[in-house]
């Protein structure tokens, strides 16, 4: 055989701008049509490390100009465009459900899923310097005061990707959180995690500051209770969780009043459903400021 041996990629976690293995040393086997792949199975401590990295990175990201945040998210879209083939193959290789259509939903090829994910990144990148104009406002109070309301980042947001449409689902929870100045700890699809691991590389090369995006692969149902109970997670966004998973997550509200936003029954391929500022709105805090306007 004169054919060259392929150099296989090792998929790892993405925490604080680096690619560590799980501190637990655990991995999980994912079947692909090109053989089995072992991915990191993130532990509670990995989650904690990711939250700490996100917390450190968040103030700087929030202070970055909206223009810059938009540029960086657009840059991630560029990087994903460059990885189009690898991502489509990864989606196809694990039998990602992109090929199958849930009832009444559009059928998506892996290539179409990647295209939609890129376009969604570009869509939200463009919101960076606009959502505050749509969600915030001046308030005409009955007195000599200048009063205005601005959306501010919530802080550290956990973003839980659905199992099906692993890339598009991840991008759909991640982009609205990142563009609005939050630092994100994302948990990839449990069943089809490889596209998320590849997407992390796009973030790393897309000028996303270390810690602003962290991506964990693993067993979502194992991590979910820890996400719910973590007191330094300010908000959660998730799509199409099971009722039981949703209930577990919402229990966390009672812990530290974290804001839990679960989008249910979402057709990820539908731009009208998934691309509007009301995806950003649950991930920001409205701050209202008053100042006398009189001498």
């Amino acid at each position: 055989m004169s054919e060259r041996m392929t150099v296989l990629k090792t998929y790892k976690l993405f925490i604080d701008g680096k690619f560590p293995r799980s501190e637990s040393g655990r991995s999980m086997e994912v079947r692909t049509n090109a053989g089995d792949v072992h991915l990191c199975r993130a532990s509670r401590k990995d989650l904690r490390d990711a939250v700490e990295a996100a917390r450190r990175a968040q103030p700087g990201w929030a202070r970055a100009t909206a223009y810059l945040r938009g540029q960086i998210l657009y840059r991630v879209a560029e990087m994903v465009e460059g990885k189009r083939r690898e991502l489509a193959e990864a989606i196809a290789a694990t039998g990602g459900k992109s090929a199958k259509a849930a009832k009444g939903r559009k059928t998506l090829s892996p290539e179409q899923e990647v295209t939609l994910a890129i376009d969604r990144l570009v869509h939200f990148a463009g919101w960076a310097d606009k959502y505050a104009q749509v969600l915030g406002c001046n308030n005409p109070v009955a007195g000599p005061y200048y009063n205005f309301t601005v959306p501010e980042p919530m802080g550290v947001v956990a973003a839980l990707a659905p199992d099906d449409r692993p890339l598009l689902g991840l991008v759909s929870v991640l982009a609205p959180a990142v563009v609005s100045g939050n630092a994100v700890v994302a948990v990839a699809s449990s069943t089809h995690p490889i596209p998320a691991a590849i997407f992390a590389e796009a973030c790393a090369t897309g000028d996303v500051p270390g810690g602003v995006v962290n991506i964990l692969t693993g067993d979502r149902s194992e991590l979910l209770p820890f996400v719910a109970s973590h007191r330094d997670i300010d908000g959660v966004i998730a799509i199409n969780l099971s009722a039981a998973e949703g209930a577990t997550l919402r229990k966390g509200v009672a812990e530290n009043l974290k804001r839990v936003s679960i989008h249910e029954g979402v057709d990820l391929a539908d731009k009208n459903t998934c691309e509007h500022p009301w995806w950003i709105e649950p991930l920001v805090e409205m701050k209202t400021m008053w100042h006398p306007a009189s001498v």
């Binding site: 109070v141 009955a142 409205m286 400021m289 008053w290 100042h291």
Partner: peptide, 30 residues
């Protein structure tokens, strides 16, 4: 959720009110 600059405890129906963190979520007014 509300920052009063050079004033304090002003309220108006057009001005949203509500907190960050463990002061609750959602706004009232505005």
């Amino acid at each position: 959720g509300v920052v009063w600059m050079n004033t304090y405890n002003k309220f108006d129906p057009a001005s949203p009110f509500g907190g960050f963190k463990e002061s609750g979520f959602g706004r009232e007014g505005g």
